[in-house]
Amino acid sequence: MATDATKPRPATKNTSVTVTSEMEEAPTRSYDVKELPRFQFFLIDSGWIGPVPELIRQNLGMITHLHDNDPFYILSSEQSNQILKKHPHLIGKDPILLARDLHGSRMTGATEYHGFHLNLGIMKDPEKALDVLQHFLNFLAVHRKSQSIESKIRQQLHRDGFEGAIEVLRGGAESLI
């Protein structure tokens, strides 16, 4: 279903950024090739023309390489537009990378949906958008085997709690936005 526009291309020199020291190191472990998928990724991209959407399209390959055990669905611009029309609260937020947590569904029953999304469309600076994407993928890789990844999102990405507040005020969160 991927159109030519959504096919990944190698990143250009202009768009590469240094991976920040904020990123955590993934614990050393051996991956089981037959490990069940933890996430289902969906990319909703209605086709806005701009540096950030283009940058995401160029780096899609990295997501599939880093999370090659998880199915990754790329919606065409027509399919994305259908979703946006049906759910207008998403307009202006795409490209959206939606990660459905299959582990959460398995634990609590198939009727409940668990997961999180990254609204890259609200980013204006392509370098910061790439930084955020890398940070997000790093977070998912590090916490892939976590039982409660949603609580880690709240603690570490939303900077909840006292420590988080200190970090936000120190400017740690500002560098992500």
Binding site: K93, H117, I153
Partner: peptide, 11 residues
């Protein structure tokens, strides 16, 4: 924090 939640959030 509001901007962080707009950027990434749980479903």
């Amino acid at each position: 924090r509001k901007r962080l939640r707009e950027l990434y959030n749980v479903l």
